[in-house]
Design a protein around this nucleic acid. Structure first.
Length: 355
DNA sequence: AATTTCCCCAACCGCGAAGTT
DNA sequence: TAACTTCGCGGTTGGGGAAAT
C-alpha cells in the first residue's frame, strides 16, 4: 500500500548511466542474479536506487534485448495487440521477444500513433475518428440537400459536445462547396467522385467480421436506439450518394510503408462506410478492414464502435461495451485478417489542426 | 556557420498491486 | 487485518542529435 521511500533523499545518482555503472550492474547480476532490487545497488557498489537499476537492466542491459529498427512484422503485431490490449505495453512486449515495454511504448508514441492520427484513425480506439468521420459524411450528405445545416442535430449529439472549430470549418466548407456547385454541372462532379473511390483487396474471415459487427450493433441499439437511428439515417444518405464504395479496383502503387496500417478483422468489423465520399482529390491512403458494410447489401454503416468507446478515453481491457473476448490466445491473434482495404481522405479536409 | 525547431528515446516519476511482517 | 515494503507498469520529461531556417 505505502509508497516506496524516495531515493532522491539519499543523494543517489540520477540521469544517464555511465559505462562503468553499466558494467558494475552487469557483473553483479551475472554473478548473483537479480532478486532484491532494493539491496542490489549497495551490493553492486552503485550509487543508484533499485528502481533505476531495474529499469536500466530490463530496458537496456538485458542480454536478450533486440536492438535496431522494428520490422514490419513487429510493427504489425504491435498494432494488432494494441487494438486488443490497449496501452498494456508490458503485455504487448511479452509477445514480442527481445523488445521491452518501454521501447514499444516509445515506438508507438513517436511513430505509430502519429501515423494513425494522420490517417484519421483514433489511436486509442483504432476507429475512424468520430469528428472527422462525421464531418466528412455531413459535408457529403448535406451538399445537395439543404442550404442550412445543423451539425449538432445531424450528429445526434448535444451542441455543446461538438467541437466549435469543426462546426466553423464545416460551415465554411459547406458554403464554399455550394458556391462551386452552382457553377458546375452536377453530373460532372459525380464523375469526379467516382474516380475518387475506395479500393478493396479482399475480405478475410468475412463471417467473423459480420458476426462481430452484428453484436456491436445489437449492443448499441439496446443502449442508444434513438442515437443509432439518427446515425444510420444520416449515414444512409451519405452512402447512397457514394455507391462507388464497392469498387474492386486495386490500389495505386506509390505508397510507402508509412501509409499502411494493418488492422485485425475481428476487431474492426465495424469499419463500414467510414470513408469520405465526396473528396475532390486525395493523397492519403488508409488501410482499413474490408469487412463491414461492404458485405452488407444495404451498405449500412455501423457506428457501434464509435459510440461505444469514447474517442478520447482509454480502451478498457474488459470493457462491457464490447463482446470481444480478451482472453485471446495466440492462434486467435494470428488469425487476424492481414488483407487491407484502403480508403481515401479527401484533401478538402485539412485535418491537421484537429490532430 | 549559427541558431532554432523538431524528434527520438533513455530515464524518471507517481501510482497501484502484490508481498511481507 | 493493518501497516509497511517492494515491485512493476504506464505516463511524462528532458537531453542530445538531426533537420530546417
Amino acid at each position: 500500500m505505502g509508497r516506496a521511500p524516495c531515493c532522491d533523499k539519499n543523494g543517489l545518482k540520477k540521469g544517464p548511466w555511465t559505462q562503468e555503472e553499466d558494467q558494475k550492474l552487469i557483473d553483479y547480476i551475472q554473478k548473483h542474479g537479480y532478486g532484491n532490487w532494493r539491496t542490489l545497488p549497495n551490493n553492486a557498489g552503485l550509487q543508484r536506487c533499485g528502481k533505476s537499476c531495474r529499469l536500466r537492466w530490463t530496458n537496456y542491459l538485458r542480454p536478450d534485448i533486440k536492438r535496431g529498427r522494428f520490422s514490419f512484422e513487429e510493427e504489425e503485431t504491435i498494432i494488432q495487440l494494441h487494438s486488443i490490449l490497449g496501452n498494456k505495453w508490458s503485455a504487448i512486449a511479452g509477445r514480442l521477444p527481445g523488445r521491452t515495454d518501454n521501447e514499444i511504448k516509445n515506438y508507438w508514441n513517436t511513430h505509430i500513433r502519429k501515423r494513425l492520427l494522420r490517417m484519421g484513425i483514433d489511436p486509442v480506439t483504432h476507429s475512424p475518428r468520430l469528428d472527422l468521420l462525421d464531418l466528412s459524411s455531413i459535408l457529403s450528405s448535406s451538399l445537395y440537400n439543404s442550404s442550412q445545416i445543423n451539425i449538432s442535430r445531424l450528429l445526434g449529439v448535444q451542441p455543446t459536445l461538438v467541437n466549435p472549430e469543426l462546426i466553423r470549418l464545416a460551415t465554411s466548407l459547406m458554403s464554399s462547396q455550394r458556391d462551386q456547385d452552382q457553377n458546375q454541372n452536377y453530373h460532372a462532379q459525380q464523375n469526379v467522385q467516382h474516380q475518387q473511390h475506395h479500393q478493396i483487396n479482399q475480405i478475410c474471415n468475412q463471417q467473423e467480421a459480420e458476426e462481430f459487427q452484428y453484436q456491436q450493433q445489437q449492443q448499441i441499439m439496446g443502449h442508444h436506439p434513438q442515437v443509432v437511428e439518427q446515425f444510420q439515417t444520416n449515414f444512409t444518405n451519405f452512402s447512397n450518394q457514394n455507391d462507388h464504395w464497392q469498387s474492386n479496383e486495386m490500389p495505386s502503387s506509390n505508397l510507402t510503408r508509412e501509409d499502411y496500417v494493418p488492422i485485425p478483422t475481428s476487431h474492426y468489423g465495424y469499419y463500414g462506410g467510414s470513408s469520405s465520399g465526396s473528396g475532390s482529390g486525395s493523397d492519403q491512403t488508409v488501410v482499413m478492414d474490408p469487412s463491414i458494410s461492404l458485405t452488407n447489401s444495404n451498405n449500412n454503416f455501423s457506428f457501434a464502435s464509435v459510440l461505444s468507446t469514447p474517442s478520447s478515453s482509454p480502451t478498457p481491457l474488459n470493457s462491457n461495451s464490447t463482446t470481444y473476448n480478451i482472453s485471446t490466445e495466440d492462434h486467435e491473434i494470428e488469425s487476424y485478417c492481414s488483407e487491407m482495404l484502403k480508403f481515401e481522405i479527401q484533401d478538402i479536409l485539412d485535418v491537421g489542426e484537429f490532430m
